[in-house]
């Protein structure tokens, strides 16, 4: 039976009518039309679907939607927009950390969650925080550089 789920998405309170078994990724992409969050593997292995729930990075593809009842969910759409690019996104662009872009929303959300918790992460810490996000294009080096760059401008994040 469908029921109403209330939570906050990118700062806005929403109510969606969903099934008991609906997963968070489907609510985002299908119900809310927030297609910035990507579906890669669908089983927790690639990180393309990463979103931030109450400050923690999670894989939305294996996350039951009902778990976010009353929670704050942040997706890439809430981070920045074409007009207002978030400093972290700016670093990704400037450092050439985006190629095909499929992994980028997930990478950004993992990096964002990290920077919210750790002011000055070193390379080891960055790698550990992004290890759940696979990228088939960049070879990761530029992504790590971008996160370091963003950490350097923390006061703006």
């Amino acid at each position: 039976m469908m029921k109403d789920l209330a939570f906050t998405i990118n700062g806005n309170a929403v109510m969606v009518r969903i099934d008991p078994h609906t997963l968070l990724l489907d609510v985002l992409r299908e119900t809310l039309d927030l297609t910035g969050t990507k579906r890669g593997c669908g089983e927790g292995e690639c990180g393309a679907c990463t979103v931030v729930v109450d400050g923690e990075a999670v894989n939305s593809c294996i996350y039951p939607a009902w778990k976010v009842e009353g929670c704050n969910v942040l997706t890439v759409e809430g981070l920045g927009s074409r007009e207002e690019v978030h400093p972290l996104q700016e670093s990704f662009l400037e450092k050439g950390a985006v190629q095909c872009g499929f992994c980028t929303p997930g990478m950004l959300m993992s990096a964002y969650a990290l920077l919210q918790k750790t002011r000055e992460p070193d390379e080891k810490v960055i790698k550990k925080a992004l290890a759940g996000n696979l990228c088939r294009c960049t070879g990761y080096k530029k992504i790590i550089e971008a996160v370091k760059d963003a950490a350097g401008k923390q006061n703006k994040l």
Binding site: E56, A57, V58, S110, A131, G132
Partner: peptide, 9 residues
């Protein structure tokens, strides 16, 4: 275990 996303959950 797995990745940070998995360890968080």
């Amino acid at each position: 275990v797995g990745s940070l996303q998995i360890r968080n959950v």
